[in-house]
Structures are given as structure tokens and as C-alpha cells.
């Protein structure tokens, strides 16, 4: 039986957060392209960054892929290609632990750096601090899940959280599954949703600027002055002769 609280926590909140996430990004991109940056602080300090940043970023990329596997792919699919429960378990815990460890160590270095290196700290906004807090909580809870789900007790998230998560996108709602999940899983899910809601308003937007296109584009970019200069299109009614219709 799903209570109202369950409905709010596992249906209303996720949809609200994801809506903020989607609309927020659209709005931020429209309104604030200039603020859409990694806001690197490497100029101030690079010794700690050199270790912390790659550790964190590569770690979190692996963690992301792990989530795609764990949350996105139904258990029946992996079983169908012959991955047994035990094998999957070993793989997930093994790779996940390494990735999680890298992420946490990297994050620790980065937060330490941000707090102790004067110029870096003074370039930290309130939004950054909030984001760091939420991100750290999400990551630590995620790590706790590995411990709780595998070592302390046993919880097969692929039959609980994953089904609920996919359901959110498929409009096939299972709030009860989350209500049954261990507390750390619930907390991880909720704080992650909170992070998604914060996402478009933080520097995390740079995630969506992963420059994969760089691998294929020509080295030198030429641009014509006419179409871009001034950063603004001609006003309505003032198009040049021969200009094509803007649709």
C-alpha cells in the first residue's frame, strides 16, 4: 500500500526535480551562455588539482556508466546475454568500489584544495558551496549503498530501485518499491533528485558541454562576420536584402 508520503517522495518530488532539471537547463542555456563554463581555478593552483581533478572526474565518469548499467538495463537483459547474478555482482562491486574510491579521494582532494588554497576559496560562490555539499552527500550515500547493499545486508537494487527509476521515465510508477528500499538507498535517491534540481543553476552544467565533437571537427574554424557579429540577429523588419527567412 502506498501512502501519500510515498507518493510525494517517489513520484511528485522526482518529477518536480526532473522538470526543474530539464527546463532549468533550457532556460540557463538561453539566458546565460556566457556563464556556462567549467570555471576552472587551475590558474591559481595546479599541484593539488593535477591529482584531485582527474581522479574525481574519471571516477565519476565510471560511476555514471555504472549507474547506466545498474539503473538503465533490466536484470532480464543481462541475464539474457548470459551474465549470471554472481558475475554481475562481482563486476559491479569490483569496478564500482574502485571508481567510487577514486571519486571520493579526488573529491576529498578537491574540497581540501578549495577550502585551504586562498585564491580558490575566495573564488567559491555560495552556490558552489551548496553544490559541493549536496554532491558530497550523494556520493557518500552512494558509497554507503555499496556497503549496505552488499556487505552488511543484501539488497538487490536491480529489482527495486532500478525498476522504480526506469518507471519514472516510462510513466510506469512503482513508488512502493522505493518505500521498501533500505534507508541509504532512499536517501541517495532523494538527495540525487535534489542535486538534479540544483544542477542547471550550478557550474555542473559544464557536464553537458563534453566536447566530443572535437574529435571530428576540422582543426581551424572559420566564421563569417555577417551572421554572428554583434551577438544579435537583426530586428524584425530589418533583415538585409536577400536574407533568408528565419523560421
Amino acid at each position: 500500500m502506498t501512502t501519500t508520503l510515498d507518493l510525494v517522495l517517489w513520484v511528485v518530488v522526482p518529477y518536480a526535480c526532473l522538470a526543474v532539471f530539464a527546463v532549468g537547463h533550457y532556460w540557463r542555456y538561453r539566458y546565460d551562455k556566457f556563464g556556462w563554463t567549467t570555471l576552472s581555478s587551475q590558474l591559481y593552483e595546479s599541484r593539488l588539482l593535477r591529482w584531485g581533478s582527474p581522479l574525481f572526474h574519471f571516477g565519476i565518469l565510471a560511476v555514471f556508466l555504472g549507474h547506466v548499467m545498474g539503473l538503465g538495463i533490466p536484470k532480464s537483459w543481462t541475464a539474457a546475454v548470459g551474465v549470471s547474478e554472481a558475475l554481475y555482482h562481482v563486476m559491479a562491486v569490483g569496478v564500482g568500489a574502485v571508481a567510487g574510491f577514486c571519486t571520493v579521494v579526488g573529491m576529498a582532494i578537491l574540497i581540501y584544495r578549495r577550502r585551504t588554497v586562498g585564491p580558490v576559496f575566495s573564488a567559491t560562490t555560495r552556490m558552489d558551496k551548496l553544490m559541493y555539499l549536496v554532491l558530497a552527500i550523494v556520493i557518500l550515500l552512494g558509497l554507503a549503498n555499496t556497503v549496505v547493499g552488499n556487505i552488511v545486508g543484501h539488497y538487490d537494487y536491480r529489482e527495486g530501485v532500478s525498476v522504480w527509476f526506469r518507471g519514472v521515465f516510462l510513466f510506469d510508477l512503482h513508488p512502493a518499491l522505493m518505500a521498501e528500499a533500505p534507508f541509504t538507498f532512499q536517501a541517495h535517491g532523494l538527495t540525487a533528485m535534489l542535486l538534479f534540481a540544483l544542477w542547471p543553476f550550478t557550474r555542473l552544467v559544464h557536464v553537458f558541454s563534453v566536447p566530443v565533437g572535437y574529435l571530428w571537427r576540422p582543426y581551424i574554424v572559420y566564421r563569417s562576420r555577417e551572421d554572428r557579429l554583434g551577438g544579435q540577429a537583426p530586428r524584425r523588419g530589418w533583415d538585409r536584402v536577400g536574407a533568408r527567412y528565419r523560421r
Binding site: 551562455k33 556566457f34 556556462w36 563554463t37 567549467t38 570555471l39 576552472s40 559544464h206 558541454s209 566536447p211 565533437g213 572535437y214 571537427r217 582543426y219 581551424i220 574554424v221 572559420y222 566564421r223 563569417s224 562576420r225 554572428r228 551577438g231
Partner: peptide, 27 residues
């Protein structure tokens, strides 16, 4: 320009001036 992953640095085709598109640069 060749190093820019975002493709934000461009050469103006009219006069060859190399500029950074501040809206495309991601730092």
C-alpha cells in the same frame, strides 16, 4: 583554435582576425 575542444576560437573569414566566442567557450 585547433586546440579548442569547444570550437569557440575562430578565424573571421573576412579579415582573418582570430577571436574567441565568449558564449561558446567553456573554459
Amino acid at each position: 583554435a585547433a586546440s579548442c575542444p569547444s570550437g569557440a576560437i575562430y578565424k573571421r573569414s573576412e579579415d582573418g582576425i582570430v577571436l574567441v566566442d565568449q558564449d561558446t567557450c567553456r573554459g
